[in-house]
């Protein structure tokens, strides 16, 4: 169990992490979501003891990272795939890590084979593609067979096959009862990978919960097709709904449930051909939640200033 306990980190005048407080539980994949610059990587660095917290603390099964007797056996982390000396071979990189934590060197061959980079094990890391470096970083994280695994933006640089592989890999780690904590700024990726989601923005916790909970709390819409579209729109607007044109024949209604839409149509003698409740996608929930806290927001596409 990983506990982020009222964590605050200030750099000079900027607050990167602001009183962040949550637990990451074993047995599930927990997604750590936020726009770029929201403090995800800083939190990851503080978990690993790389950066010192200004206030609060992080504990791993009750202990601080620097008090772990053999860190790689308890926590495996992939922070930055390129954080490896380019002149060293993959095998030597892993051997040095293994030896420092009393891990048998036979384990190096195991993790090289598991991540599929055994054929380049004796090549210098400097020549690796980002995808190969990611796999090396995952190999390093797995060296000590740890119960807690942290991955910072792990899908960056992976090809579609690699992304599918890593998703299944996270699931299998969680099924083994491990704690899997994965950060990403891509909501769509997390929707497919994570069970639990923690959303932060500007260093603050915005919300947390299961993927289902998050989409359920968000306001959904109802798609309705009817014989007399204009009449139905008028009726629904009278009941306080916001009605938009979804296609040539369908309306997208928000503010009313599908039951209410159906009953309103029946009362007005309008024939309905389709009535479908639409749940908000996790992507939309995320955009709503973090809209306030995007550090570097662009203008809307139409607003691009054209030369006069």
């Amino acid at each position: 169990m990983l506990t982020i306990d009222h964590l605050t980190k200030k750099y000079d005048n900027t607050v990167a992490v602001d009183d962040l407080h949550f637990d990451v539980k074993p047995g599930v994949v927990t997604g750590f979501l936020g726009p770029n610059g929201s403090g995800k990587s800083t939190t990851m660095r503080i978990i690993l003891g790389l950066d010192h917290a200004t206030k609060g603390r992080v504990t791993i099964n009750g202990k601080r990272y620097e008090d772990l007797k053999s860190p790689l056996r308890e926590v495996g982390a992939l922070l930055d795939a390129k954080a490896v000396h380019p002149g060293r071979t993959a095998r030597n990189h892993l051997r040095a890590l293994a030896v420092s934590n009393r891990i048998k060197t036979s384990r190096v061959d195991e993790v090289l084979a598991f991540t599929g980079i055994d054929s380049v094990a004796d090549k210098k890391v400097g020549g690796f593609s980002l995808g190969m470096s990611q796999r090396l970083g995952i190999a390093a994280a797995l060296l000590g067979d740890p119960q807690i695994l942290l991955f910072d933006e792990p899908v960056n640089g992976l090809d579609p096959e690699g992304i599918r592989w890593i998703r299944e890999f996270f699931r299998s780690l969680a099924l083994e009862g491990r704690t899997v904590f994965v950060s990403s700024h891509l909501m769509s990726e997390m929707a497919l990978t994570a069970d639990q989601i923690i959303v932060i923005g500007r260093g603050k916790l915005i919300t947390q919960g299961s993927v289902d909970d998050l989409t359920a709390t968000a306001q959904g819409t109802v798609t309705v097709r009817a014989s007399n579209r204009e009449a139905l729109a008028t009726v629904l607007k009278a009941k306080g709904a916001v009605v938009e044109l979804a296609s040539d024949t369908a309306l997208s209604v928000s503010g009313l449930t599908s039951d209410e839409v159906g009953e309103a149509a029946f009362a007005a003698h309008i024939v309905i051909h389709e009535l479908t409740p639409q749940r908000a996608s996790l992507e939309e929930v995320f955009m709503d939640l973090t809209a306030e806290s995007v550090e570097y927001g662009g203008t809307t596409p139409g607003a691009y200033p054209h030369e006069q």
């Binding site: 926590v75 390129k82 954080a83 490896v84 890590l97």
Partner: peptide, 19 residues
């Protein structure tokens, strides 16, 4: 300094947290 220029210091300190 090569640990800092390559960024490998982060990997190193994750493995050896006692600086």
């Amino acid at each position: 300094t090569s640990e800092y220029s390559s960024g490998s210091i982060r990997t190193t300190l994750a493995a050896v947290s006692n600086r």
